[in-house]
Design a protein around this nucleic acid. Structure first.
Lengths: 340, 340
DNA sequence: TCTTAACATTCAATCGATTTCGTTACTTAT
DNA sequence: ATAAGTAACGAAATCGATTGAATGTTAAGA
């Protein structure tokens, strides 16, 4: 087992100083052609790679981006990460991914850990628990220390930083209008509890969608689910004997579960009840029937976040603070669950 | 914007030396109670956090684990990561995740990058392209430099390192036998091309499963899919007019797609054709009909990998090399697609 | 022969934290 | 009074790499 080789090793072996080695490797014309060649050859032979940690310390930048997301086992978030990674790697950045597991404490710990030297900037989507608590001191502190932070999807309005979001309201409104346009008149909503920002916004979109068709909002047609793990029972109880002809669900799991429950009631999707979900994941695509859904263009979101962050990191002018909020368009993808 | 505070700042402010500050913060009894209190109070006030990079450089360990997986948008892998993160975080380790995107080059670049100081060890599942090429020099080199590497799922037999795998052969055999036990006699196999290690092993399991029931292997009932993107057409063409009563698919996408194609042919699942997939993902669980599948216990795999790696990192005895291969049991999860 | 410039190489500081080894100043024992 | 011991702190080396300043060497020109 040969240990990792350092400049010092090369210097000793070649009987020259460390600085000469360093300069030779960087091709500095301060060093004679002869020595340069020798050093380079030696370095190549022993497969020398500069130590990233030492470089980070010296340059005071790590060339890594920290991404903190609520859940890693989640198609939408992984799609976003895909986009982040793509752009980051192209520009020579590493990506560190941490999941907060929707826990406030873990989010704080992760953030503090990564903020102390491990990363140059953050891309983050806050945990459910954090939104519920409304405690954002860790984010504020990180920003105050001069670290750029980009928030995406689950953002915090009152935070002063860059934000990449989809227009959840419009997306939801579009989805609802689509249901109405194919003839539905009793459209139910399956959503999350209100403190989840996106759930709230999509609920608003649903209401606006109905209003656009002059349909009164019937609160008894709205189901708010707190605990995802028990959504099947909740949805089952909710849909039992309910006279509806359309469902808008704020995520694909709720949509697919609704489809399943309806099947149990021997109702046909889309003929008896049409369904539109949110998030274009695997489930929507491959479910039977496949689900009409609102795509959030996760990859694009990730790419944009990454670009924005790297841009901040590399072209930051002292004293100038400028924050953008970027809205990525949603897109309604029509599939079998509304094909009638 | 207040800059990050360092020991030096504290030292200057309190008019004592850096070493005193460091010792005081660590509670060394070398320092008077008085100074200790003062330093600690000051540090707390200014929210001092030691710089990770400096610590890493000094200690020659980063307390981070690098995970390289073929795809990030993949339920099984994210499940594994969940397990890795859980254990790692409990033990105070960071996790860096990089996807190779199934590209050999990206795998090599990522590995070399992370090996030069950014991480203490690796947990990796090799890219499809790497398996195809059979070029593992980057892994060998990393191991030779003294970095522990744990391979999981898509492992390389000839590599000398720890491995965490599921018994793909037995899992597949079990799945096949289940189909036969519920009465299927003409069981088709939908698999990947042979160079994907798990595909090959599951194919073997399928064959063994048939042999156990004294059923001859009919190569015309085996479909090998190269390009996942076009699996629907392939499966459609394959199943058209085929006289079968069971399908074993080596992943859940193939299984779900088969179900969809069969529905197009107006065949019932499970009554006309029963289906078993592999990987217990979202699709298998929420698809209609839900899919019987072989669960690989991804989270457990991740947890185990993490434990094994951290154990290596913390209790490594010089001169002793010992490598384990751990086989995680698979489990057949019976659902609607074989309920008859 | 002496000066001067050009060139090659090395020194030393730096990044932030830790740690060993001193160095004071004082107290206690002999 | 002297040796020894102790408490409290600081200087400097270290981790690995970079870089501006300083040093040393050589050859050309006066």
């Amino acid at each position: 087992m040969k240990q990792k080789i350092t400049l010092k090793h090369i210097a000793k072996e070649l009987e020259i100083s460390v600085s000469t080695v360093s300069k030779a490797l960087k091709g500095s014309k301060e060093i004679s052609e002869d020595t340069r060649q020798k050093v380079k050859a030696f370095a190549k032979l022993y497969n020398y790679k500069p130590n990233n940690i030492a470089l980070s310390l010296k340059n005071r930048k790590t060339k890594t981006i920290a991404v903190i997301i609520p859940e890693i086992v989640h198609h939408f978030f992984t799609t976003v990460i895909g986009g982040i990674e793509k752009v980051a790697n192209e520009k020579g950045y590493q990506v560190i991914i941490c999941s907060s597991n929707n826990s406030f404490d873990k989010e704080v710990i992760n953030m503090e850990m990564l903020a102390s030297g491990s990363a140059d900037g953050f891309i983050l989507s806050v945990a459910k628990e954090t939104q519920q608590k409304g405690d954002y001191h860790h984010i504020t502190e990180t920003i105050n220390q001069g670290m750029p932070v980009i928030m995406f999807d689950r953002v915090v309005d009152e935070m002063v930083c860059d934000k990449i979001i989809v227009d959840d309201v419009r997306g939801a409104q579009h989805a609802t209008n689509h249901l109405l346009s194919i003839g539905c008149r009793k459209v139910a909503l399956i959503t999350t509890v209100d403190y989840v920002s996106v759930g709230k916004l999509r609920t608003l979109g649903y209401k606006r969608g109905l209003s656009a068709y002059d349909i009164e909002i019937d609160e008894s047609l709205i189901l708010k689910i707190e605990d995802v793990a028990h959504c099947h029972e909740k949805i089952h109880a909710f849909l039992k004997d309910k006279d509806i002809d359309g469902i808008f669900a704020v995520n694909e799991l709720f949509a697919a579960t609704a489809a399943r429950v309806l099947k149990g009631f021997h109702k046909s999707v889309p003929d008896d009840v049409a369904i539109v979900g949110f998030t274009d994941g695997i489930l929507s695509k491959h479910c039977i029937p496949s689900l009409t859904t609102v795509s959030q263009h996760g990859k694009q979101m990730g790419e944009y976040s990454s670009k924005l962050l790297i841009n901040k990191l590399e072209n930051h002018e002292e004293g100038i603070e400028e924050y953008k909020t970027v809205i990525i368009d949603t897109e309604l993808i029509e599939r079998e669950s509304t094909a009638r």
